[in-house]
């Protein structure tokens, strides 16, 4: 059982990184990125190809993934960041779907639908299976803690305040001489890099990746982590990711009590619950479990709820 908990915590750690990255883009800056799973996928494949086809070490793969994430994030941002919220959402969603199609079709590069087998792992050689599992967990949690530290730092600095100001009303920081576009671009690219890094960790953890691993439901889970945890609150995303992974894995142990439903209905029910919770939270508690801490400005001003804007 302990080994199973290690496995769940590893997955949770990866979701925490994804949720933090999305929280930077959406929670702080107000960018609606539905292409989370696209960057995740890109990072996983970039890292896998670097280590398997070019024999890079794990750290090399991780770096390749992050650079790829930065380039893709930058290009996508240049194309679409001038658009308003809903169009950005559509373009990023399209990006994720297109990435998946490309990786599914270009067998020569990615192995196509049969997937990419990854032998490189972030572990020391010649240890037992359970020791390996703990080492992977340690690597993933280190990544999650570093990301959290970076995000908490970012959110507290003047830089983070400018991002928040852009989210609330881009005209104000623009009037103050801030280049809104550059700030948005930076926020989007940092988020993309972190998502790609999460993809790299995921790839070397599961060891077989196929395009089927990167479908839209994954993005829904990450969005749910951010919304449930509280957009704009970094600790909230950590809690949100833990809640989501617990619901997702925990429902497995409920199956014996749902004997009157067939397996297909159980898996459908899981998504019905997740989707409904998401809608209910947005309607009744848009600030999430942990609301964004209020920053008392020098001149008191009224604030709108976090999801508006």
């Amino acid at each position: 059982m302990d080994a199973y908990l290690v496995a769940i915590l590893t997955i949770a750690g990866i979701y925490i990184i994804l949720a933090l990255a999305l929280n930077l883009q959406f929670g702080l800056t107000g960018l609606v990125n539905f292409g989370v799973v696209g960057f995740f996928c890109l990072g996983a494949y970039a890292s896998g190809i670097a280590t398997e086809s070019f024999h890079a070490p794990f750290v090399g793969g991780l770096c390749v993934a992050m650079v790829t994430g930065a380039v893709a994030g930058g290009l996508l941002a240049l194309l679409s960041l001038r658009l308003s919220g809903d169009f950005l959402a559509i373009v990023t969603l399209g990006f994720a779907e297109t990435i998946r199609l490309i990786f599914n079709n270009e067998d020569w590069l990615t192995g196509g639908p049969k997937g990419l087998l990854i032998m490189t792992r972030p572990v020391l050689a010649d240890y037992s299976r359970s020791a390996n599992a703990w080492m992977v967990l340690a690597v993933v949690l280190t990544g999650a803690v570093l990301t959290l530290a970076l995000m908490l730092r970012l959110a507290g600095t003047p830089y983070g305040r400018v991002l928040r100001a852009i989210r609330e009303d881009e005209l104000v920081p623009a009037t103050l001489g801030k280049n809104v576009f550059v700030y948005r671009l930076q926020s989007f690219v940092i988020g993309s890099v972190l998502m790609a890094a999460a993809g790299s960790l995921y790839a070397h953890y599961v060891q077989t990746i196929t395009p089927d691993n990167f479908t839209t439901p994954v993005a829904i889970l990450v969005w749910m982590s951010v919304i449930v945890g509280g957009p704009g609150n970094m600790l909230g995303s950590v809690i949100g990711a833990l809640v989501v992974v617990t619901i997702y894995e925990g429902s497995r142990f409920l199956t014996p009590w749902l004997g009157f439903l067939d397996a297909e209905q159980v898996s459908a029910l899981r998504f019905i619950v997740i989707g409904t919770v998401l809608i209910l939270v947005i309607r009744f508690r848009p600030e999430g479990l942990l609301p964004e801490p209020k920053h008392t400005p020098v001149v008191p001003a009224t604030r709108r709820p976090a999801l508006k804007g």
Binding site: V32, I220, L269, F271, K308
Partner: peptide, 18 residues
């Protein structure tokens, strides 16, 4: 915001499909 409603509509489509 449009983004919020879009997210809700995506969640809704998952609920309907399932």
């Amino acid at each position: 915001s449009g983004g919020t409603l879009l997210l809700v509509s995506i969640a809704l489509s998952f609920v309907i499909e399932n």
